[in-house]
């Protein structure tokens, strides 16, 4: 498949999701009555909203208006904060990016070296310790770990603030929570990717030629281990997004994750659909980038430059 085709497919997925959201919103009935109490709002005001957000005409007309609104960045009106949804979400975005970015760095800082060391000592005591840590980390839900950290550092030791944003100290516990729990999964992936690469015949054959272990690791093991690792990136991005919803709620972090939880509880559909589309866009772009990276790393794929 060519690159253009992949991008086209990305757009197609995006369009599909936008349409699905539209259908789901319409399936629940008149969206205006879902937002406003029809008994306590003047008819004229309701009508004005209908006009403003394109809820007039046939369903198809509404659909066209809907698409055009989204292309213009108008996702509707947040009933919770009385502003347009776009600005509500955008002002929360930096906090989430900061949290997720730091967590991703922590995850890789733990996962790559620990996973590599475990793979190189496969079966040894260190490996078993790492695997145990990984299993425990996997079973420890974000909110339990977060609350445990609060109980330890905020309630007992009174070292760190349990809630809010602002200083570096506020960042420590949420980043630890996401970083550690995702590192538990990532370490396992790194370990198995390297372990699989170590078992390749081409590694054995390089060893038989007397290539040094250092060169074997960097030139034969790592390039092959990168392939499965690249493909799990979307999975990790998704896991980060999911984790931020929970962890931001636990630590009162004013990001998009907490916003979506609040919006769902308040049924603020405009904000929810904006966030959903944003996440969809992120996932689609991630997948596209992964495809690109994979074709750069693996000459066997169809996207790779021809020789």
């Amino acid at each position: 498949m060519t690159l253009a085709l992949r991008i086209l497919r990305g757009f197609l997925s995006l369009w599909l999701i936008v349409t699905l959201v539209f259908v789901a919103l319409r399936a629940t009935g008149d969206p205006i009555t879902a937002i406003f109490d029809p008994d306590n709002t003047p008819k004229a005001a309701l009508e004005a909203y209908r006009q403003q957000w394109g809820y007039t005409g046939t369903v198809f007309d509404q659909y066209l208006v809907y698409i055009s609104n989204i292309l213009h960045g108008e996702f509707g009106f947040s009933s919770m904060s009385n502003r347009d949804a776009y600005s509500v979400v955008m002002e929360r975005l930096p906090a989430t990016l900061q949290l997720v970015g730091c967590s991703a760095l922590l995850m890789m800082a733990i996962g790559i070296p620990v996973g590599a060391v475990a793979a190189l000592n496969s079966g040894g005591r260190l490996d078993r310790f790492v695997m145990t840590f990984s299993t425990v980390g996997f079973a420890l839900p974000n909110f339990v770990l977060g609350l445990a950290l609060i109980l330890l550092f905020s309630v007992n030791l009174r070292l760190l603030p349990s809630n809010g944003i602002g200083t570096a100290a506020h960042l420590i516990m949420p980043v630890l929570t996401i970083g550690i729990s995702k590192a538990a999964i990532f370490t396992r992936f790194v370990r198995s990717a390297i372990l699989d690469a170590l078992k390749l015949t081409c590694v054995t054959s390089a060893r038989a030629r007397g290539v040094s272990e250092w060169q074997i690791f960097w030139h034969h093991v790592i390039p092959n281990a990168m392939l499965p690792l690249v493909t799990i990136t979307p999975l990790l991005v998704g896991a980060m997004v999911a984790a931020s919803a929970v962890v931001e709620t636990v630590f009162g972090w004013p990001g998009v994750g907490r916003l979506i939880v609040e919006s769902v509880a308040q049924r603020d559909l405009a904000v929810v659909q904006m966030i959903v589309m944003m996440i969809a866009l992120v996932m689609i772009v991630t997948n596209l980038l992964v495809d690109l990276a994979y074709s750069k790393l693996d000459p066997r794929t169809a996207l790779a430059p021809a020789h």
Partner: peptide
């Protein structure tokens, strides 16, 4: 298997 004994990505 010569294909396996050579590094596929180099």
């Amino acid at each position: 298997d010569p294909l396996a004994a050579l590094n596929p990505v180099r």
